[in-house]
């Protein structure tokens, strides 16, 4: 039968490509019993709307960012800890770890069955006007997603975290309604935000996880042998996806530098004391954070 996978990334985005690859492989391996149709670009709605449809069983699968989960349960915000890991490879290891597995399990509370973790590029900072030091970020309006851990980071830096929908971002950045954004190289290059930038901080300061999920209702109705195929294929394709992102980051960074934008390396020290203050605040919100740090330190 036909199943539906809804996600918000457009067709050229790696998440969509991985979803399509997984769908093709699953259809083949199940002899067409599980035929997953991929709906990119939010064709079935925003992440909030897709989650609602996963819960009713109108949509069967999705690959989603953690925004919707973190707004329901603070535990799902901990992956957005600043400087949790050094690079994509380490992020990939962490997403295969115990804490990540536990959070995947916990998705039953949202009416979902977690299939695995993926990610997008490491977060960087694109600024309209260059910043000499971290003090120069004070009072600047930085576009974020409305996700508590991300917004808190910018508040602690003295900046003004400004959530706004993605389609509004291009005009807002060009006109100066926001002074900067937290984004990966891929997004900055593809939509051309970098053309209005004055500096990119190569900060690698946060990872951006994605969860592949199935509707709990649809999952329960699926034959056990088909479920095994779906689990297996998603796990493989997600591993591939994580492996690709180090290259995607490097390639797009190169393009942006070649286009003439100043790219400045900054590290954890550059942002201090905001990073330490962030951990102090979030250790109080969720004890799981300390466990995740322990895993990351291994």
């Amino acid at each position: 039968r036909d199943y539906r996978l809804g996600l918000i990334t457009p067709p050229p985005h790696q998440w969509t490509k991985s979803a399509e690859a997984a769908a093709a492989e699953i259809a083949e391996a199940t002899g067409g019993r599980v035929n997953i149709l991929v709906f990119p670009s939010g064709q079935l709605g925003s992440e909030a709307h897709v989650l609602q449809q996963l819960q009713t069983g109108a949509v069967d699968f999705s690959m989603m960012t953690l925004g919707e989960f973190a707004s329901r349960d603070a535990d799902y915000g901990i992956f957005h800890a600043p400087y949790l890991v050094e690079d994509i490879a380490a992020a990939g290891d962490l997403l295969q770890g115990e804490v990540a597995a536990g959070l995947l399990q916990g998705m039953s509370q949202f009416g979902l069955h977690g299939l695995g973790w993926g990610l997008a590029g490491m977060r960087q900072v694109l600024l309209a006007a260059p910043a000499e030091d971290v003090g120069a970020l004070a009072g600047r309006k930085i576009r974020t997603v409305p996700l508590a851990p991300e917004m808190e980071f910018w508040s602690l830096l003295g900046a003004a975290p400004t959530p706004m929908p993605l389609p509004a971002l291009y005009d807002a950045f060009a006109n100066g309604q926001v002074d900067g954004m937290q984004i990966d190289y891929e997004g900055s290059w593809n939509t051309g935000y970098y053309t209005h930038g004055g500096q990119m901080l190569a900060s690698d300061h946060m990872i951006f996880p994605m969860a592949a999920v199935a509707s709990g209702r649809s999952w329960a109705a699926m034959a056990p042998e088909d479920r095994a195929v779906v689990e297996e294929v998603f796990s493989e394709r997600l591993k591939d996806l994580v492996g690709l992102y180090a290259g995607i980051d490097a390639e797009n960074r190169e393009r942006i530098e070649a286009a003439g934008l100043t790219v400045t390396e900054v590290g954890r020290d550059w942002f201090e004391p905001a990073v330490s203050a962030w951990y102090d605040a979030w250790h109080e919100k969720t004890p799981l954070l300390a466990e995740l740090e322990k895993e990351a330190a291994r």
């Binding site: 600047r140 309006k141 003004a160 400004t162 959530p163 929908p165 309604q177």
Partner: peptide
């Protein structure tokens, strides 16, 4: 509020 550097995140 946004132009004063204190965006109302709930406004939209």
């Amino acid at each position: 509020a946004r132009s004063l550097g204190a965006p109302l995140i709930w406004a939209d």
